[in-house]
Design a protein around this nucleic acid. Structure first.
Lengths: 147, 147
DNA sequence: ATAAAAAAAGATAAAAAACTCTTTTAATAT
DNA sequence: ATATTAAAAGAGTTTTTTATCTTTTTTTAT
């Protein structure tokens, strides 16, 4: 198990790919996204459907349709995708699930976990969906051939 | 989803409880452990069975039997429980599952995730199962009534 | 030796996550 | 208007995780 569920990883990778691919305008189809980010197409379709309902990504049907991102969406933090898909379990509660553990009565590991989780949250909040589109990423290519 | 699977949380809580409860000698039964750490008894039994096979906890059958920890086990890092139960997915690979991402060709988030995961690993490695038994924990009580 | 206690082992069940397939709806080009 | 394209919606299926139940084995006390 990684930090995120598989569903969430697909959601992040898919959204990053849409951002990059449609940076100059246009749309990209589920088929193309799925192929590029190595995810099962119909499953990804469901995930993006959900993100679309939540206005995290945009889509249109019909010829020349597909997924894209508007300006607002590009500015959204990664944290919104993670929260939408995995909830906030990564950021809240006791790290080891102790009922009696809280801010007031912290378990011995509480503050250390809290520190780590705050860092995760900070990273996901400061990173926006559109952050890695341009030359900013210094030649690093986050996706495979055909990106 | 938190950092760990539920199975792993039960394993950690259970082992901590065994450590504390048998610090002065003796054994503790699954029944008592399950009640104290708020986990389903037969499920916890399976988990501890597994940890027992891996020599992470000790057990004996029969009257006055139950679970306990020997000196070696008390010194083991929490990381061993986590690895045994959840594997090393939390510490390795790309944070968002990018195939093309690696040390040599890192994705834009690679190093930030790596840093966070190293911290998690360090915390789990430096913390031993027996660490929170004595006065060390400064009056903090990690378990409920009857601990 | 026998009975009782307690974990180990094995087999099964329920719930959640991951994944697939089919039909419907919306958009566009002709 | 019609055909075509592509996502949305809905209804499954499969796999994994979480949880339960029953039987067996081991240990101890009597």
């Amino acid at each position: 198990m990684g930090l995120f569920s598989k569903t969430c990883e697909y959601a992040i990778r898919g959204t990053f790919f849409i951002a990059r691919k449609t940076a100059g305008g246009g749309r990209v189809s589920i088929k193309d996204i799925a192929a590029a980010i190595d995810s099962p197409e119909p499953f990804l379709a469901k995930i993006l459907q959900d993100l679309s309902r939540r206005r995290i990504v945009q889509s249109t049907k019909g010829p020349n349709g597909g997924f894209y991102l508007n300006e607002d969406s590009l500015k959204r933090p990664l944290a919104e995708i993670v929260e939408a898909v995995d909830g906030n379990g990564l950021f809240t509660g006791c790290g080891v699930g102790l009922k009696q553990c809280s801010e007031i009565n912290p378990c011995p590991l509480h503050n250390e976990f809290k520190n780590i989780r705050n860092q995760i949250q900070h990273l996901l909040k400061k990173t926006s969906i559109g952050d890695f589109n341009g030359d900013i990423n210094l030649g690093i290519i986050p996706f495979g051939i055909g990106n």
